[in-house]
Computed example of a mutant assay.
Amino acid sequence: MSACRYNADMTATLSPEQIAALCRPSAQPVRIRIVEETGSTNADLLAGLPMLAGPTLLLAKHQTAGRGRAGRTWLSAQGKSLTFSLAWKFGVPVHALVGLPLAVGVALAEALAMFNIDVKLKWPNDLLYNGRKLAGILIESAGAGSVPHDVSWAVIGIGINMSLDQSVSEHIGRPVASIPWMAELDQNTLMAGLLSGLADALVQFEHEGLAAFTGRWNSLDAYAGQVVTIIDNGQVVHEGIGAGVDGIGRFLIDTPGGRVAVMAGDVSLRPREA
């Protein structure tokens, strides 16, 4: 898929029809909606799940109440970031979706690589570019009703920074990635690539589970072989060498006392400060 460029406001020419026309077959069933502004695309799709007939992508040109992991706020800027959510129905129960954020991270990284954007993955749900946060993932799941029990929905929220300025980094309190030329890419082509990569991955995840993604995730691990810390409620609870993820999505860290497997929860992974 080629990455054409244009010089207009990146959100001005976004078109559901053009995105759909560029998508691979796995993404063709997805209904694509684009709105000028909303609070949270995840919240909108979660509220509308009972009315959805099939997979739905909701993209907001401006999001005023974006949410990140552990209740954090996700800041975005119109024309300088992409904020969208994908509601996807799985033929498996909710508990089978453990590890889905890792699979989504792999899908996004592989899709961005098609546009010569090389990213690394930070467990459990971030994409880094040159060591700075480029994108975040928030997945919220729900059962599809009382019957059948083996069906569930996942609403996959994604925020991608492209050309955010220093003021956003200052507000967040840590540096974020900035790729100004990314905002100059044809956004319909970019979104089609991302949606197609996600759809391919979600189909594979339903049939093969996390096992199909762990090796790929580990090859993209930002902190493989590096000294990292695990922080819980502001306190360092583990420190050691990052060793990737295991078959159920736990982060592995080799400490002086042996290998520890960490579940996501609300803990934070950080490189040890020099």
Rank of each mutant, 00 (worst) to 15 (best):
L138K: 09
L138Y: 10
I139M: 06
I139Q: 08
I139S: 08
I139R: 06
E140Q: 13
E140G: 06
E140D: 07
S141Y: 04
S141D: 07
S141H: 09
S141E: 12
A142T: 11
A142G: 00
A142Q: 14
A142F: 03
A142E: 13
A142I: 04
A142L: 09
G143N: 14
G143W: 14
G143F: 10
G143L: 13
G143A: 15
G143I: 04
G143S: 15
A144L: 06
A144F: 03
A144P: 01
G145Y: 07
S146C: 11
S146V: 15
S146W: 14
S146F: 15
S146A: 15
V147R: 10
V147K: 07
V147F: 12
V147N: 05
P148H: 05
P148Y: 07
P148V: 00
P148G: 05
P148K: 04
H149V: 14
H149A: 15
H149T: 14
H149K: 14
H149N: 12
H149D: 13
H149P: 12
H149E: 14
D150I: 02
D150T: 12
D150Y: 05
D150N: 13
D150P: 02
D150E: 10
D150L: 03
V151L: 03
V151K: 03
V151P: 00
V151S: 00
V151F: 01
V151A: 01
V151G: 02
S152M: 04
S152K: 01
S152W: 02
W153N: 00
W153E: 06
W153Q: 06
W153T: 04
W153V: 01
W153K: 02
W153I: 05
A154E: 01
A154G: 07
A154T: 02
A154H: 01
A154N: 02
A154Q: 00
V155P: 10
V155G: 07
V155W: 09
I156G: 08
I156T: 08
I156Q: 06
I156D: 09
I156M: 02
I156L: 05
G157E: 11
G157W: 09
G157C: 10
I158R: 01
I158H: 04
I158D: 00
I158F: 02
I158A: 02
I158S: 04
G159M: 13
G159P: 06
I160H: 10
I160K: 07
I160S: 08
N161E: 12
N161M: 14
M162W: 12
M162Q: 15
M162F: 14
S163D: 15
S163H: 04
S163L: 00
S163A: 12
S163N: 15
S163C: 10
S163Q: 09
L164D: 04
L164M: 15
L164G: 00
D165L: 03
D165W: 05
D165P: 02
D165K: 03
D165C: 00
Q166I: 10
S167Y: 07
S167D: 14
S167L: 12
S167I: 11
